[in-house]
Every structure is written in structure tokens, then in C-alpha cells.
């Protein structure tokens, strides 16, 4: 199994053209997709909670944050599946929402 994983990792690395294998803390850093193949959000747009009723399901998982001035912001993890990272600013604090 380990050999198969190593071969798979090597094939992936060759396919992506990774120059050298990076090892960190004893674990290999695998390259599995081109950079930015999953697009992080750099200029987030928002709707109000009321407007969101049409696009959000009750059971939808969210990451919620409250800024120091009380501004509440929710990020759907279903949505984050497609972006992984949101670069946002909440009440003046620059935040990276990661999923």
C-alpha cells in the first residue's frame, strides 16, 4: 500500500512537473492540482440573512465569525468546498477563512 502511494505520488509529481519533493516534518507535500485550480475568494460579496433564505438550507453548515464591533458573518462550508479560502475583512480585522 505504501509503495502504491509512493508511486502514485511520483506520477502526480511528474504530471504536474514538480521539480523536487518537499518534505516537511517527515511528511511529503504532494502536488495534486495546479496553483489556483481551486479559486480562493479575494473580493467577497455578501447578502443579508433575510436575502440568504433563498440560497441557504437550514441544515447547511456554516463557519460563523463575529468581529470586535459585533458584525456577524457566515460562510457556507458547502460554498467553501469550491473555494477553500476567503480573504475577508471583518470590523477592520483582515481574516482568512479556511476550509
Amino acid at each position: 500500500m505504501r509503495t502504491l502511494s509512493a508511486i502514485a505520488g511520483l506520477l502526480i509529481a511528474l504530471a504536474v512537473g514538480l521539480p523536487a519533493q518537499l518534505m516537511v516534518d517527515g511528511s511529503r507535500v504532494y502536488s495534486v492540482l495546479p496553483v489556483d485550480a481551486i479559486p480562493a475568494i479575494l473580493d467577497p460579496a455578501f447578502v443579508t440573512g433575510r436575502e440568504a433564505g433563498r440560497i441557504m438550507a437550514d441544515e447547511e453548515q456554516v463557519i460563523g465569525v463575529v468581529g470586535p464591533n459585533g458584525t456577524a458573518v457566515a460562510y457556507s462550508t458547502w460554498h467553501l468546498d469550491h473555494h477553500e479560502i476567503v480573504n475577508d475583512v471583518v470590523d477592520g480585522i483582515a481574516l482568512a477563512v479556511t476550509w
Binding site: 455578501f46 440573512g49 460563523g64 458584525t71 456577524a72 458573518v73 460562510y75 457556507s76 458547502w78 468546498d81
Partner: peptide, 14 residues
């Protein structure tokens, strides 16, 4: 948080 903002998404995604 009834006054929450929500990150805009294109549609109802599972």
C-alpha cells in the same frame, strides 16, 4: 445572529 451577513453564493449547493 439575525442581522448576520452571508457570503454570497450562486445557488443552493450541496
Amino acid at each position: 445572529h439575525p442581522d448576520t451577513k452571508v457570503l454570497k453564493k450562486p445557488k443552493l449547493w450541496r
